[in-house]
Every structure is written in structure tokens, then in C-alpha cells.
């Protein structure tokens, strides 16, 4: 990887430049919180954001998308294409860039998901350093750092950015749109200092030792009933999770009843019908088994396949849960031998 330094006041040039041939998506303020939304004016962007309501997955796997159009008469697919316009996700924090790498494992390995791939291939990613908030626990999964999965990563050094250039495209757009200069020893020393302070900023130091073992060994622990009795099965945790990828597929008919579209929408393992099969059997009927499954899959199921947990410690689920359930609390309860 190589590096350049960009003065802070020059950053709008990069956003404006990218806007000329990309749709730029970045963090903006909305009702006192932040959301990733299309940027029409570089001054809208709020690079001091803590976290966004919805994660960036929304721009790679939309909450609802048409997979194909069909004709009922001959059961023929008439169109299974998606058009993905060039897009930039601007200002993603390391946790969110890491979340996309976890989604890549699911959608780009084995049978490739063509809808995700089309968008992913046409998305440029500009990362941005952040400040730990009280709900962040990316530090426990080492997702507070990111070394690939982006084109440019900007570390805020106060008056300037330390720009890590990961891809040819990243280097090319930086060169084209903004004045930058070579890195000096002082820049790198300042970068180290910023990283050092960043690492000191985390307040959640959860013990994740042997988590997969604990999940199996304590599968019947009352911990799950405790949390399950508080869980409302609202699915908010899954919707705001940058790594939850489950979806449902439905057919929608046109008024003529002869043609229609197959549509997929975000789904959650917390919903009652999620694991129900045709003749009445439901493999996870009660809330505690569904809550347990979510943790079990994140911290063991996914890990068993891809050697990483399916969580980047962004803390969105903690903020979204109406019952105040958080992964930090759940893991601590498991570590504590069932007492909370």
C-alpha cells in the first residue's frame, strides 16, 4: 500500500470530482442522527458522524430488489438483470468496510450472487477514520482496523488526511480530483499518534475467549431464556446490522395476473415464521431459540465457514434494540457462567 497526504480544505474537491461520474453516497445528518444518503453538495457530508442508522449494506443489497421478471403462461424468466450505476460509498468507518468483506464471503463465494456482485463491482469505497463511541466494540474483533476492501482510506490527522491508497482506481481518482503531496516522516509519526489515541478510546473490552465453545457448551443455559424473555422479536437488530444478510423471496403479480416480478426483501431470523416449513413444523418457535440462533450463527456458524465472526462491533444493534439487549451483554453473560 502507498500513501499520500491531502489537506483537509481540499477534500470537497475529491467529493465534487467523484460526483462528476459517480453517485456519491455519504453520511449526512437526519433528525439528530446520521444516515448514508446521496450527496448533492459536498458541504452536506458529515465526516464527524458517529454511526449511521442503517449500515452501508443497503447500497449493495437494497431492502427490496427485483430479482427477475417472469411470464406466468410459459413459466419463462423475461428479465433477470440489474443495472448498477457507478457509485462511491464515501466516509465508511473501518467496521463498515469490514462488514462488506464479510458479506463478500457470502455473496461472492460458491454460487455468486449476481445482483450483489454487479453493485459491488461498480462501487468505489472511500474509508474514513473514526472516534470510538460508547457502543462500539470493534476492538474486540479487530475490525477497528481495515487493510483491504477499500479504494482509499483517509485517516484524520487534524488539519490533513493521511490517505492510504489500496487500489489503482483509488490512486487514480485521488490523483485526478485533488491536490495531494508525498508523505513525510512527520505525517507518519502523527498517523501513529492518532492511531494510538484511537486505540485508547474503547470502553468495551469484552472477553471473547473460546466463544464458539461456550456457545455449544452453554446451549441450554438459562441465559438464553433471560434474554429471550426480554426480546420482542422485532428484528430491528438484523435490519440495522451491517452483516445480517438473510432475505425473503416473494412473487408479485401485475394486475393482468399474467406477468410479475420475483422480489427479495431483507428478512430476520428473529421473525417467527423464519424457520417454519410447509406442514406446520417450526424449528424455532419461541423467541429465546431465535435470539440464541442469531448469536449462535454470528459467533459460530459463520465462523465455522469463513474463520471470522459475523459481527464487526459497530454497536448499531445495541442502539436499535428496544429492550436494551446487546452483544456485549450477551457475551458477558455467557462468560459469567449464566449470571448477569
Amino acid at each position: 500500500m502507498f500513501f499520500r497526504v491531502v489537506d483537509k480544505e481540499r477534500l470537497p474537491d475529491l467529493i465534487a470530482g467523484l460526483s462528476s461520474d459517480h453517485e456519491v453516497i455519504g453520511p449526512i445528518e437526519k433528525d439528530g442522527r446520521f444516515v448514508f444518503a446521496p450527496i448533492s453538495d459536498p458541504s452536506q457530508i458529515r465526516l464527524d458522524y458517529d454511526t449511521t442508522l442503517l449500515p452501508p449494506k443497503k447500497w449493495l443489497m437494497p431492502p427490496e430488489e427485483t430479482m427477475m421478471h417472469f411470464n406466468c403462461a410459459d413459466e419463462e424468466v423475461t428479465d433477470d438483470t440489474v443495472v448498477a450505476s457507478p457509485r462511491v460509498l464515501f466516509g465508511l468507518h473501518p467496521c463498515d468496510i469490514n462488514s462488506l468483506l464479510l458479506l463478500d464471503n457470502v455473496f461472492l463465494q460458491g454460487h455468486v450472487d449476481p445482483y450483489y456482485k454487479a453493485r459491488r463491482d461498480n462501487t468505489l469505497i472511500v474509508g474514513m477514520s473514526c472516534t470510538p463511541s460508547p457502543t462500539c466494540f470493534c476492538n474486540v474483533w479487530d475490525t477497528d482496523e481495515v487493510h483491504w476492501g477499500f479504494d482509499i482510506f483517509l485517516t484524520d490527522l487534524g488539519d490533513r488526511y493521511y490517505a492510504s491508497l489500496r487500489t489503482v482506481k483509488g490512486a487514480e481518482v485521488l490523483d485526478r480530483h485533488v491536490d495531494s503531496r508525498a508523505v513525510t516522516e512527520k505525517d507518519t509519526a502523527d498517523f501513529q499518534q492518532v492511531v494510538h489515541e484511537f486505540k485508547q478510546g474503547f470502553s468495551n473490552n469484552v472477553d471473547t475467549a473460546q466463544l464458539p465453545v461456550l456457545l455449544d457448551a452453554k446451549f441450554d443455559s438459562p441465559v438464553w431464556d433471560d434474554f429471550g424473555s426480554e426480546c420482542l422479536s422485532c428484528g430491528a437488530c438484523s435490519m440495522v446490522c451491517p452483516t445480517c444478510y438473510c432475505f425473503d423471496v416473494k412473487d408479485r403479480l401485475e394486475v393482468d395476473q399474467k406477468s410479475g416480478a420475483r422480489v427479495r426483501t431483507w428478512d430476520s431470523c428473529q421473525f417467527k415464521e423464519f424457520a417454519a416449513v410447509a406442514h406446520g413444523q417450526n424449528f424455532r418457535e419461541d423467541r429465546s431459540s431465535r435470539l440464541k440462533y442469531r448469536y449462535y450463527h454470528k459467533y459460530w456458524g459463520y465462523l465455522s465457514k469463513f474463520e471470522r465472526v459475523l459481527c464487526v462491533g459497530c454497536g448499531r444493534c445495541t442502539l436499535a434494540c428496544p429492550s436494551g439487549i446487546s452483544p456485549v451483554k450477551v457475551i458477558e453473560a455467557l462468560q459469567a457462567g449464566g449470571s448477569r
Binding site: M68, V77, D80, V83, S85, V112, D113, P114, K117, D121
Partner: peptide, 24 residues
């Protein structure tokens, strides 16, 4: 703009795995 369409994106040569095929 360089739009990408699913039918143009290389998917390991297997095509769209979600697409059903007509069977009589």
C-alpha cells in the same frame, strides 16, 4: 457512466443461480 448489468457480469460461468428454467 459504466452501468453493469447482471447478464454481463462474470459469475464463474454458472449464470444466475436464482433463475429457474422451464420444465415440462
Amino acid at each position: 457512466m459504466n452501468d453493469i448489468r447482471v447478464d454481463e457480469c462474470a459469475c464463474d460461468g454458472v449464470g444466475n443461480a436464482y433463475r429457474p428454467w422451464p420444465a415440462r
